[in-house]
Structures are given as C-alpha cells and as structure tokens.
C-alpha cells in the first residue's frame, strides 16, 4: 500500500527512469553497430528502428503501470466495501460521523466566509465598528437587538473625538407603491450620514446627505438599491425625482 502511494508521487521519477532506460538501450545498440562497422548515423537509425517508436514503447509501459494501479484500486474498493458490509453498525456510525463532520465544517466555513472573508463593499470596511448595548434591559426588556435610541445616535453624530462619522440604520419592511399596487419591500431607515460615512455613491441621481434628516417629518427621500432598481424598473415605473408612496408596515 505504502509502495503504491509512493508510486503515485514518484510518477515523474518513473517516467524519467523509463526514458533513461530506453536511451541506454538505443545508445548501446548504436555503439555495437558502430563497432560492427556501420557509420554513426546509420547505426543510430538502425538502433532506433529495432526498438520501434519510442513513444509507442513508453505508452505500452505506461499502460502496464496503469492497469496495475487500476486493478489494485478496484481490489481495495471491493475489499473495503466487503468489510463495511460485514460491519453495518460501524459503517453507519462512520458515515454519520463523516456527514456531521462535513456538515459542521461547511456551516462554519460559510459563516466565516460571510463574516470574515467577505468584507462589506464600502470604502474602508476595516474601519467600521458596530456600537451595541451590553445588558438585558435595552428596548422593552427584550435584550440586545442592536437597538440604540435615536437621540443617543444624534448625540454620537455630533462628536468627532472618537469616531470620524456615525451612521444609524434600522431594517424594516415598507409598502412601495409607485403608480400601481403597493408591494412590500425590505428597506432600511438610515441617518443622513449613512452614505457619507460608508463612502458609497449613487449610480444616477443623488444619495442621502446630512441635509435630509435635519427636520423630522419633512420631505422623505428614498434611495433605491441598484439591483432592485435594475430588476423592478420595468415592473414599477420609478424614475428620478418621481413621487412615490411609502407606508410603514409596522
């Protein structure tokens, strides 16, 4: 078994060996023919002709190696299948452990991939921090939900000692009616600093700025997600500066 494994790794070595072996044969054969009185190039030609096409010989030898490996592989497979069938309990346990192991690893990897490896598509994702409450009495006593009161958020926005900029956001669902039936869509309520802090700009039109959230209740503005706009622009005729109706579902 070990030798077979080594054979796999020594594949290049085997090829090399074979080439050396065949070269030795031709050289010796040619040398003997020269000694027998043939001119050099004629001797080489005859020596090569006697052994046939080198590539052909190499192919045949490779076939020998391969059949051997394949046969051994099939034997191993059969042997292991038989031993597994003989001990179904053990097999079930092993398969289950593998399944769980692979499942867990995949789950953890997808999580790490999302959180650590894929950074947010914003200007400097590594400088973003999330401010959160510790404790169990934030909001209505439901524990921590990344909830932060709006006054506190505004307060944080006025400082510039700790953070360069502060944004607040809250995920929600709204009904969007633009010249048709209202449809529920996922949305985010954000502060005017949102786009400035993230360093994200618009494809067309403008994004929200600090001026947009100065007075509560005035001129609500909407920025559409690019994909959303691409996907719905035919279904929902939304254009720049158009008035649309948004109602909160909560």
């Amino acid at each position: 078994m070990i030798r077979r494994l080594l054979n796999w790794f020594r594949r290049a070595g085997l090829e090399n060996d074979l080439e050396r072996e065949l070269r030795y044969h031709i050289d010796r054969s040619a040398a003997d023919l020269v000694a027998a009185g043939f001119p050099e190039h004629e001797a080489r030609r005859r020596a090569a002709a006697e052994i046939g096409r080198i590539t052909q010989v190499q192919e045949e030898v490779r076939d020998v190696w391969l059949t051997r490996w394949l046969r051994d592989f099939i034997y191993d497979l059969r042997y292991s299948a038989r031993s597994y069938l003989r001990t179904p309990g053990f097999t079930a346990t092993a398969v289950l452990s593998f399944a769980l192991g692979i499942g867990a690893t995949t789950a953890i990897y997808s999580l790490v991939d999302q959180i650590l490896l894929h950074s947010l598509p914003v200007r400097e994702p590594e400088r973003l921090v999330l401010i959160d409450w510790k404790g169990d009495t934030a909001g209505g006593g439901f524990g921590t939900w990344n909830l932060m009161s709006y006054p506190l958020c505004r307060e944080l926005q006025t400082q510039n000692r700790i953070f360069e900029g502060v944004l607040c956001r809250a995920a929600t669902t709204v009904n969007l009616a633009a010249g048709g039936e209202p449809r529920p869509v996922t949305a985010e309520l954000v502060s005017g600093t949102y786009f400035g802090v993230l360093g994200v700009g618009p494809a067309i039109g403008r994004v929200l700025g600090p001026d947009d959230d100065q007075t509560p209740g005035t001129s609500p503005v909407v920025v559409l997600n690019y994909d959303f706009w691409q996907a719905r622009s035919t279904a929902i005729p939304i254009s720049l500066g158009r008035k649309s109706s948004l109602t909160s579902t909560r």
Binding site: E21, G52, V57, V61
Partner: peptide, 9 residues
Amino acid sequence: QGSLYPALH
C-alpha cells in the same frame, strides 16, 4: 525489442 520493456515492467 519494443515489446521487451512493457514485459519487463
């Protein structure tokens, strides 16, 4: 002679 080497291997 060409068939010698496959046989040897």
